[in-house]
Simulated scan of single mutants.
Amino acid sequence: MKVRKLALLTLALTLICGGVAYADTVSQKLRVLVVNKKSESYNGIIVDNKVYVPVDLITDKLQGIVITDETDNKVTIYKPNVHMVTSKNKGIFGDVEKGAKVDFFTHIQVDSLKVDINALKLTIVDPYGEETLIESRKAGDSDFPERENIWMSTKEFSYTFSSTGTYTLRFYVKPVGQSSFQVISEKSIASK
């Protein structure tokens, strides 16, 4: 009786360990590098010689627009072409002195926006991660751009660059039918 139980236990352990070893050879974890920098919060996986990465990686790191359609079990990714320029006193800038209070405009140009949006916003993030809204617009506003190619300038915005470091302008859009904003462009301003 003991021999039979021992044989069954040995067989069960062999099957379990063999299954784990097989699963490990079929799928492998993958380090993800974005613009040659390791992504700490995202890992990929290789299954049957195909690479899979999280969709959030595309929105967070590559600033693409991800549209999910659960009825068709489909994910569509769009990457619009976005340019942002900051200007003050009739000139463009990208650096400021620490402590300077700057009145500036942000000029945004977007082309190849292949998805309908119902809101957009521009924020500035200080070197410590605190985000401040510069401007937002929603569908129905008189100044809301409703076309594939967007050319817009924000209202003049006054901001004090109180710390040394990198400040980041983030341009978000909210696609129609989606519940959250997605970053599609960033621009840095250095405070020295």
Rank of each mutant, 00 (worst) to 15 (best):
M1A: 12
M1L: 12
K2L: 10
V3P: 00
R4F: 11
K5M: 12
L6P: 01
L6F: 13
L8K: 09
L8A: 12
L9D: 09
T10H: 04
T10A: 10
L15T: 11
I16G: 05
V20I: 09
A21K: 14
D24N: 13
T25V: 09
V26D: 03
V26F: 10
L30K: 07
L33A: 08
V34L: 00
V34P: 00
V34Y: 02
N36V: 06
N36G: 08
K37P: 00
E40C: 05
E40M: 15
S41M: 15
Y42V: 01
I45P: 02
V47Y: 03
N49Y: 03
N49C: 00
N49P: 01
K50C: 13
K50V: 15
Y52A: 02
V55Q: 10
V55K: 08
V55E: 07
L57W: 01
T59V: 11
K61G: 01
L62W: 10
L62F: 14
I65A: 01
V66A: 11
I67S: 02
T68K: 08
D69Y: 11
E70Y: 13
E70R: 14
T71F: 15
D72F: 08
D72W: 10
K74D: 15
K79C: 10
N81V: 04
V82Y: 00
H83P: 00
K88I: 04
K88L: 03
N89M: 06
I92C: 09
I92L: 12
I92N: 10
G94T: 11
D95S: 12
E97S: 13
E97Q: 10
K98H: 07
K98R: 07
K98W: 06
G99A: 11
G99Y: 11
V102G: 04
D103Y: 06
F104S: 00
I108V: 03
V110R: 01
V110M: 07
V110C: 07
D111N: 10
D111W: 03
S112Y: 04
L113P: 08
L113I: 05
K114H: 09
D116N: 07
A119N: 02
L120K: 10
L122G: 03
T123A: 05
I124L: 03
I124E: 01
V125M: 11
P127V: 01
Y128T: 14
G129H: 07
G129T: 05
I134L: 08
E135A: 09
E135K: 03
E135Y: 08
S136E: 11
R137H: 08
R137V: 00
K138L: 05
A139I: 15
D141S: 07
S142H: 06
D143M: 06
F144W: 02
P145F: 06
E148I: 10
E148P: 08
N149K: 14
N149D: 11
N149E: 14
I150C: 04
W151I: 06
M152F: 14
S153R: 07
T154K: 03
E156V: 15
F161V: 01
S162Y: 15
S163G: 04
S163V: 15
T164A: 12
G165C: 03
G165W: 04
Y167C: 10
Y167W: 09
Y167F: 13
V173R: 05
K174V: 00
P175C: 01
V176R: 12
V176L: 12
G177T: 11
G177F: 05
G177Y: 01
S179F: 09
S180M: 11
E186T: 14
I189F: 08
